[in-house]
Design a protein around this nucleic acid. Structure first.
Length: 476
RNA sequence: GGCGGCGUAGCCAAGUGGCCAAGGCGGAGGUCUGCAAAACCUCUAUUCAGCGGUUCAAAUCCGCUCGCCGCCUCCA
């Protein structure tokens, strides 16, 4: 069985067959850069990051494009408020976006095009649409005539006539139909503007994604993704303008991720319940955040709660202790008798299950469960290693495999938050106390040792006695 | 009003016709450890919002009811 993907276009899971065997071309709608990105943007980026990683793991050569919308009303308005050029504002938030995504372990896309760098491509596309008679000019604007595209509404399952009836938007009288959307807008005084055959202006929102995706991936490509709110009208409009222009199918598989809610409500600026990635990364271990987000299937809504990220952080310890143990054992290189007692076979089976569940529309929740099962298996084996019943080699191989699978999900990349800095004075004091306690333990003076443990606890320090040495850390 | 989704253990969350209903957190008992932590072992849903129906068989399909949410407007 091959990879299956839920396609918004057909509302079902379909076997994934790329246009060119062994190669995947994928475009994901990024963000409009006028503010800091929030956890919803993070989730979306992470979902497609994992999809891209898995496709590569499956052996596909993936060409992955994620754009930045850097010209838009919101950017212009915000820039005006701050009294800075729109371009500077956009650049600033592109920088911030990159930092935030890096913190979440979201890899860069192969190409991260900006709308303003592709104005000529957009103008060419609009000219094609005008030439085909599916777009029209009004003053300095150009509109796409939705009625000319019979398949309009197919992606979102909407009936254009009903949309018309229920249209609540204030209607621009100059448009032939309320559903028609702007391909090009004549720019007003003080707005960013580009020269075009229709006068000075700027592109409409939807045209950029059509122009950039086709520029980098061709007129037909495999995957186009984004948040579920983009289905209508953004993606619907992209299909209309792209297919009307080229006459060929635009995208084969449409993938949309579910929303992050806060307290069962959609996060939105108007409700003021925005959680920025920056804030979250400050509050939580980014890897725990990632594990938490992966625990829910990408198409389902996710109700964000800090407490659940904390739970994920505790769960993460299972893997971490295994890695630490493996590092310790690898250094020691303990030779031991005994085979692997079927461990390697089970590890291979786990890999098989991992692929099976990821093949089923990228079910990361189940993939994570496979990882936990594997960890469990390895822990059991580890205790046998400690008792000298089995060799350490298979254990190390198994941990290596777990690591490899985790990395397909972007886990275990060593992005753990750096330990908080301990002031030197405190450090010296703690180390002296820990040393004194170790000496007391050597003397088997448990009363003194326990008293010192309590004193350390009072300083917010947790002491752990290992097989070889005693370690300490600050209470989280 | 139109379209769509969701309701699974204390909490989170997979599973969408048939092996014991994954996994995590939490909880209980035990092993190990001077104590503790970690780890390990065992247990923790006769049941999938409710009611009807289809079927040899349903959490999974159909209908109705209740509750919640999203899209239809800029939005990941």
């Amino acid at each position: 069985m091959g990879l299956k993907i839920y396609n918004t276009l057909t509302r079902q899971k379909e076997e994934f067959l790329p246009l060119h065997p062994g190669e995947v071309r994928m475009y994901v709608c990024g963000v409009t850069v006028y503010d800091l990105s929030h956890i919803g943007h993070g989730r979306s980026a992470l979902a497609f990051d994992v999809i891209c990683r898995y496709l590569r793991f499956r052996g596909y050569q993936v060409r992955f494009i994620r754009n930045f919308t850097d010209v838009d009303d919101k950017i212009i308005n915000r820039a005006r408020e701050e009294g800075v050029p729109p371009r500077d504002l956009a650049e600033r938030y592109i920088d911030e976006y990159r930092k935030d995504m890096a913190a979440l372990g979201v890899a860069d896309a192969e190409v991260e095009p900006k709308a303003t760098d592709h104005i000529p491509q957009m103008i060419r596309l609009i000219e094609q649409l005008l030439a085909k008679g599916v777009a029209y000019r009004v003053d300095g604007d150009v509109y796409f005539e939705v009625k000319r595209f019979p398949r309009y509404g197919r992606l979102s399952g909407k009936n254009p006539d009903e949309l018309l009836a229920g249209a609540r938007v204030e209607v621009d009288e100059r448009k032939r139909d309320p559903l028609d959307f702007a391909l090009w807008k004549a720019s007003k005084e003080g707005e960013p503007a580009w020269r075009s055959p229709w006068g000075s202006g700027r592109p409409g929102w939807h045209i950029e994604c059509s122009a950039m995706s086709m520029h980098y991936l061709g007129e037909s490509f495999d995957i186009h993704g984004g948040g579920e709110d983009l289905v209508f009208p953004h993606h619907e409009n992209e299909i209309a303008q792209s297919e009307a222009a080229t006459g060929c199918p635009f995208v084969r598989y449409w993938i949309h991720n579910g929303f992050v809610n806060l307290g069962a409500e959609k996060m939105s600026k108007s409700l003021g319940n925005i959680l920025t990635v920056k804030e979250l990364v400050r509050r939580h271990d980014p890897e725990a955040l990632r594990l938490y987000l992966l625990g829910t299937h990408y198409r389902n809504p996710l109700d964000f709660a800090d407490e659940r990220v904390e739970q994920a952080a505790r769960a993460l310890e299972r893997f971490r202790s295994l890695f630490e143990e493996a590092a310790r054992l690898a250094v020691k290189g303990t030779p031991a008798p005994g085979g692997d007692q079927g461990l390697l076979e089970e590890v291979a089976a786990a890999r098989g299950r991992f692929e099976e569940v990821m093949d089923d529309d990228f079910n990361t929740a189940q993939a994570v469960a496979v990882l936990f099962d594997l960890a469990h298996l390895l822990q059991t084996f580890r205790s046998k290693v400690m008792q000298g019943q089995v060799a350490v080699g298979p254990f190390l191989l198994g941990v290596g495999e777990m690591n490899a699978l985790g990395r397909v999900l972007g886990l275990f990349e060593g992005r753990a938050r750096p330990a908080p800095l301990v002031p030197p004075a405190l450090r010296a004091k703690v180390e002296a106390l820990v040393k004194a306690r170790s000496e007391a333990r050597q003397r088997r003076d448990w009363t003194a040792a326990d008293r010192l443990r309590e004193e350390l606890a009072g300083l917010g320090v947790i002491v752990e006695d290992g097989p070889e040495s005693t370690t300490w850390k600050l209470k989280p």
